[in-house]
């Protein structure tokens, strides 16, 4: 899922300067699961903004709404009335959600209330970790399901860098060395021989370096 984190209230106040009627719009998908932009967080952030508005005499009204998915036009429609009534939207969706709303409402200022961080998983309650860099050409099958592109600080594709100490990453000792994990995993599934193959330099063409990417599925188009 997409993992995001809220901006601070002073940051939001700064972003919303000059608006008098703000809609805090939540998203019921990824950011709900990572506890950053779901219905509950909308309620909390809207409440904090109303408190800030009153303590700092900012005089703006804050309304709240959460839709199922901000990155989908079908669901965005459900917010039409609330968006029309407000003079700015503070989206608590991921970066894609914010842009989807902004594209749908060209004359309405739409701001991001979250910092979209990464594609990750819930490691344990309250802890999310990055697992995928969306590089566009997945190599997980070669590394026992552990991604060296995301989880190795140096994106090494042919073994560890030599700086890891006692299975810890050289760049951040709080993290395990991804290559240690890859080795253990390949050993436990009996595929250690995969490490004997030299991996050629990765093709970064399908990654973000070529600008925003598009997928077209003719079989699904109408």
């Amino acid at each position: 899922m997409i993992v995001a984190e809220r901006k601070t209230i002073p940051e939001l106040i700064d972003i919303l300067q000059g608006h008098k009627n703000v809609l805090v719009l939540g998203c019921g998908t990824c950011v709900t699961v990572c506890l950053a932009g779901g219905e509950r967080e909308v309620s909390i952030i809207a409440s904090a903004l109303r408190i800030a508005s009153r303590t700092q005499n900012l005089d703006f009204k804050v309304s709240e709404l959460t839709i199922e998915r901000q990155c989908d036009n079908i669901f965005i429609e459900q917010a039409a009335e609330a968006i029309d009534k407000s003079d700015a939207v503070l989206s608590l969706g991921c970066g894609a959600g914010v842009q989807a709303i902004a594209e749908r409402y060209p004359r309405k200022p739409v701001y991001a209330g979250l910092n979209t961080k990464f594609l990750g998983i819930l490691e344990e309650r309250g802890i999310w970790t990055e697992k995928c860099a969306a590089c566009g050409a997945c190599v997980l099958h070669e590394y026992g399901g552990i991604c060296p592109v995301t989880r190795c600080a140096k994106h090494m594709l042919n073994g560890p860098c030599g700086g890891s100490k006692e299975d810890r990453c050289e760049v951040n000792p709080d993290r395990p060395c991804a290559w240690q994990l890859i080795y253990q995993r390949l050993k436990s599934i009996g595929q250690l021989q995969k490490l004997e193959q030299v991996t050629m330099p990765k093709n970064w063409g399908p990654s973000l370096s070529g600008g925003p990417r598009t997928i077209i599925r003719d079989d699904h188009r109408i």
């Binding site: 209230i9 909390i44 904090a48």
Partner: peptide, 8 residues
């Protein structure tokens, strides 16, 4: 923390 950020 949130209240402090909001000025209370």
């Amino acid at each position: 923390k949130l209240l402090a950020e909001a000025g209370l």
